[in-house]
Amino acid sequence: MSVTLLVEAAEPSCYNRAVNEWWCTAYLADYRQELVDATTQHVVLTVSAVLLGIVLAFPLALLARRFGRLETAITGVSTALYTVPSLALFPLLVPFTGITPITVVIGLALYALTILVRSILDGLASVPDDVRESARGLGYGPASQLLRIELPLALPVMMAGLRVATVSTVALTTVGALVAHGGLGNLIADGVFTDFRAELLAACLLCVAIAVLLDVLIVGVQRLVTPWTRTRAAS
């Protein structure tokens, strides 16, 4: 016992309470599993929220486009929703969903939904009228016109919206720490309350890294599925 104490006194690790360094490689090695788990939870929460947002946004956007009056209602409600801070939105969902990851996913999906509905509407509106008319003239029905002409042409604008939605969802997930499901946010909260700088900085950096990586991933997918935008830019 006394031997270990002596060793520690001689060479305190950089995340020792007395040293408390911001950057500490020993911390990263010793707490690797905790960091991996939090990062995984963060990515899972973010991706499920964005996917749920996409699933809900498409029917809403199509309905809004079909019925003009509904568009005002949908954009109005989503703008109102967007003004509610996440720290207040999560508690408002708790009576229905409890202290579970579902609360966080639904809350985040609602925020993502706002951005996604808007960009789907903007994307569809960006399709030129003459293109639509040509499609009709070629005998496309409403459904096949939407799937094969309008959606592909709307992709660049919609993907831009998806990027914004994803990046802000990564950042917002941290607030889930309030209901104990915040991915890296849990580590940030712990870092603040135990004054543990190495943990705090590592979690913050990982969070930004996830946002950048997901953003790059979406840009990559976008380049793959819209090859025509590249040739146009090159010429």
């Binding site: 990046v167 990564v170 917002l172 941290t174 607030v175 603040v192 705090l200 913050c204 930004v208 946002a211």
Partner: peptide, 15 residues
Amino acid sequence: GRAVPTFALLALLVA
């Protein structure tokens, strides 16, 4: 601004 979590920046400033 969107990619940096508000919570993270606040936490860093406070610590």
